[in-house]
Design a protein around this nucleic acid. Sequence first.
DNA 1: GTCGCTCACAAACCTAGGTATGAGCCCGAC
DNA 2: GTCGGGCTCATACCTAGGTTTGTGAGCGAC
Lengths: 217, 217
Amino acid sequence: MIRQTSVKPAPAAPSPPLVVIVDDDPAVRESLDSLIRSVGLATRLFGAPAELLQGSLPDVPGCIILDVRLPGISGLDFQDQLARQGIALPIVFMTGHGDIPMTVRAMKAGAVDFLAKPFRDQEMLDAVTAAIERDRQRRGATAALDDLRSAHATLTTREREVMTHVVAGLMNKQVAGVLGLSEITVKIHRGNVMRKMGVRTLADLVRMAEALDVPKP
Amino acid sequence: MIRQTSVKPAPAAPSPPLVVIVDDDPAVRESLDSLIRSVGLATRLFGAPAELLQGSLPDVPGCIILDVRLPGISGLDFQDQLARQGIALPIVFMTGHGDIPMTVRAMKAGAVDFLAKPFRDQEMLDAVTAAIERDRQRRGATAALDDLRSAHATLTTREREVMTHVVAGLMNKQVAGVLGLSEITVKIHRGNVMRKMGVRTLADLVRMAEALDVPKP
DNA sequence: GTCGCTCACAAACCTAGGTATGAGCCCGAC
DNA sequence: GTCGGGCTCATACCTAGGTTTGTGAGCGAC
């Protein structure tokens, strides 16, 4: 896979993963902060969900540690809200007054773990490690897909139409028939598609189309 | 997608989904049985996990309702055991003495739901409906994949090698070079692959290879 | 042994894919 | 207006893909 990365200021030092801690109790925040920092991870502390939504987060792998009981909003509702806003950071819940339905709801909504207080330090660290790993996976997949999407965005309307039919398995003359073009024109568009998408073989183009979920004609 | 179905005795009447109920309390079994039957679903009752493992289950969509506390084995351990044995029926847990760690473990292991007793009838029916739908999806995906696998299994070793390189995007002459063959031989193998896999275009073959996870050369 | 399958290769032939050169049309931006 | 981009098409030429027919070697099963 060719990563078509955009121009960046070249971050020399790779930042450590970031753990966002959301809890209304300062003592809990501080305690988690030192625990997380002790294993070399960066932290960001918030006393309320709203604070998190305002500031933007750095572009590094990470996760969120979220108390279920928060000022103004349930942690579970906040989970939904984050999802709706496209913030896909994995969430580790913790709670002092949890029950089974809460746990089920959180896990169904994609939480990595759900820890009842009191929990052992190691439990939290394991959950955070798993969450960060999940985020790393997701970021990798997203980055590769973004490159594909931006390449696909450079195609003209016609080129996209031709690509759609080509990856569906139609021959050039068939594409020409469907689109009301001559075969030579289809060939030219097809060549442009291959060049712009940065592939040399039809097989690669088909795989790209699959990843992009190019609509069937 | 061409379904290459194997020869079957043509089941005229589509069987209803099957709900397997595992609980050591006969009263609970009976109660669930009548609830599930009341919505037109078939049931199979077991008092202990071992009974389930002996008999074979019919080939219809379904799910398992499993008590966490079972004679001889934890429902959670039994969940693992089923997974190891390749029994992928979705599981709805119920428990009278559940806690959060149990819930988390069950959900992480893929349970559809985890209901604390007492639960309302409708909760159980909703969970069962969701579980059956999940099984239906899984069965559909599995059936399509099985057809692909059986087609792929009819290929000779050489044909598989050629297919691998062809879907990787190599030209016939390049495949010939890699495998130490002449180009004409590659063309013949390639034609056999297309015929045996039941596709007419390279695009389709690439998609099949993706679904089959054909190893990169 | 011989039958069937796999594998390999060749000659001949046809279709499909790909590129270069050149040219005309439309349309929106500067 | 004209300049560029997108779209269209033609001729010409070359490469790649695909099938058919025919040949022959190796090998395991019956």
